[in-house]
Amino acid sequence: MKILVGIKRVVDFNVRVRVKPDGSGVDTDGAKMSINPFDEIALEEALRLREAGIASEVIVISIGDSSCQQQLRTGLAMGADRAIQVDTDIHLQPLAAARTMLAVIETEQPGLVILGKQAIDDDNNQTGQMLAALWNRPQATFASKVVVAGDTATVTREVDAGLETIEVDLPAVITTDLRLNTPRFVKLPDIMKAKRKPLEVIAFTELAVSNDNNIQIDHYAPPAVREKGIMVDSAAALVTELKSRGLL
């Protein structure tokens, strides 16, 4: 079974992001870029399935300009067998990203697609669900445990009420939550081996995918700065303060 894993290049989670002064987006100039952490978890899960003999091949895919090859190479160094870059300068929204993935799925015919539940840049949490609908296959989102046996996957999902376990027929789309696994560290000899693994570039225009953006972004703004708190010296003073603000 082939597993296809989506990888998005995002600003590293340690970087404090800044909105561009004109509000047109987030300033990524010179910022350290990494694999979206949820995608790293997706790749780790795929690699574990391969190491358990359940999957035969793990393919990582990213949509973006050539700079996302750096994250694909990291994915190859973690252990993926090969990589696909869908080359485009356009910042695709989730629906277009799902359509693009579907076009690749039609060629690759994976038995399982694992994606991060969301990317930490736009936090959309949509691509996996949309892809499952377009592909007309089951979805198991927010996975915290995955067991694959034969043609089904038993997936424990983190939902508002707690944990929910569902069984889905394969092929299916699984999206990962934080507690599914702890991704491995990249080993130095594998960085050298990754250079020799295949990385295929497909032009976005070749896939004939529609990119009609259904969401228009007006502008970006940083969150409002929190106002400084005040110190009160007694419980009575606290109650008075809260009352004066209409909070009690």
């Binding site: 350290k32 990291t74 560290f185």
Partner: peptide, 23 residues
Amino acid sequence: LNPLDLYDIRSQLSEDELMVQDS
């Protein structure tokens, strides 16, 4: 500017070297 890399030394590193440093 990154206060810990004011002259953007990382831009002078190869993809492999960046991956080594980051990992």
